[in-house]
């Protein structure tokens, strides 16, 4: 069972007339994984999601979702998936509860089961108190939360989310990510999410970075970042003289002068930090800066650096 990937795409591509929206995408998503599909606007993320959710026929290549082929068995695929679209699909004139009930009816859940799951979903997304209010009165974040709630009501094996944090403020975005992380850890649901906010994608188990309709890098966020380059440790102190020597003694690394103190370039900050601990008692501020996924993205798509191969 574990051998069947939740999603498998092989050379998946789609043209719109003469334009290649998605060139050829390859990736696997393991069951239960939280998978991030990152890339700038126009990279082919939405088109890929449309193909995986059977809304769009691929021009070339193939894809399986939950072991079913998107072209050969679209109904089978749809039976296993939930989709949260980029644009909300809520009815503004209906209440939160009515919007959810539309979905439980759609999937033919019994009245009892439906009530149970609606309660559960509203609780999970903190919308219990607003259940009888019309969605029109909801903030963007609450609407998104309700969209998510709707996506999981029928307990899909694989949940697709297209830019779920688009247009939300940072607090709301953080909340949505918390919901998603919780959903992934508390259930067997596989999450496939697209976003162009790279820096958000750290909680993902694995990510694929796409550009111009191709996967340009893939792996665990930490691995990708490590592959990109080394980490730097910044030391800030007003008693700079003597600090450089002490650092050299403690770590064996030659420090460079930086804006308000020193900076150390190391392979793995975590292994060096303990040695620097005594310095903190002398009022030296220690900060580690690591490459972000954003940096990885810039590195692999910017074309002015050596690219780590996908």
């Amino acid at each position: 069972m574990a051998a069947v990937p939740a999603i498998a795409a092989l050379g998946l591509g789609r043209d719109y007339g003469a334009v290649r929206a998605v060139d050829a995408i390859d990736f696997d998503v393991r069951p239960g994984e939280f998978f991030g599909f990152l890339g700038p606007n126009g990279a082919g993320k939405t088109t890929t999601i449309r193909m995986l959710t059977t809304l769009l026929q691929p021009t070339r290549g193939s894809a399986q979702v939950a072991g079913r082929d998107v072209q050969g068995d679209p109904l089978g695929v749809r039976r296993q998936i939930g989709v949260v679209f980029q644009e909300t699909t809520l009815d503004l004139d209906l209440t939160a509860e009515e919007n959810l009930r539309f979905c439980t009816r759609l999937y033919g859940l019994s009245r009892k089961e439906s009530a149970l799951r609606i309660d559960e979903a509203l609780r999970l997304f903190g919308l219990e108190e607003r259940r009888r209010e019309r969605v029109r009165s909801f903030s963007g974040g609450m609407r998104r939360a309700l969209d998510l709630a709707r996506g999981i009501l029928h307990r899909p094996l694989v949940l697709f989310l297209d830019e779920p944090t688009l247009g939300l403020d940072p607090t709301q975005r953080r909340r949505i990510w918390e919901f998603l992380r919780r959903l992934c850890s508390e259930s067997d649901t596989t999450l496939f999410l697209t976003t162009h906010y790279m820096e958000e994608a750290d909680p993902c188990d694995r990510v694929a970075i796409v550009d111009h309709g191709r996967v340009v890098a893939a792996g665990e966020p930490a691995t990708l970042k490590r592959a990109l380059g080394r980490e730097s440790i910044e030391l800030t102190s007003d008693r700079a003289p003597g600090l450089a020597r002490r650092v050299r003694e403690l770590t064996g690394v030659e420090p460079h002068a930086a804006a308000h103190g020193l900076s150390l370039i190391v392979d793995d900050a975590a292994s060096v930090l303990p040695a620097l601990l005594p310095l903190t008692q002398d009022g030296v501020e220690v900060r580690v800066s690591r490459p972000t996924l954003e940096d990885v993205f810039v590195a692999v798509t910017g074309r002015d650096q050596e690219l780590p191969a996908a």
């Binding site: 909300t88 809520l90 009815d91 759609l106």
Partner: peptide, 15 residues
């Protein structure tokens, strides 16, 4: 079809 629940219908397991 673009902004409403019809999209939900299109990804639901229905012919």
């Amino acid at each position: 079809r673009e902004f409403g629940p019809i999209r939900m219908l299109l990804v639901a397991p229905l012919p």
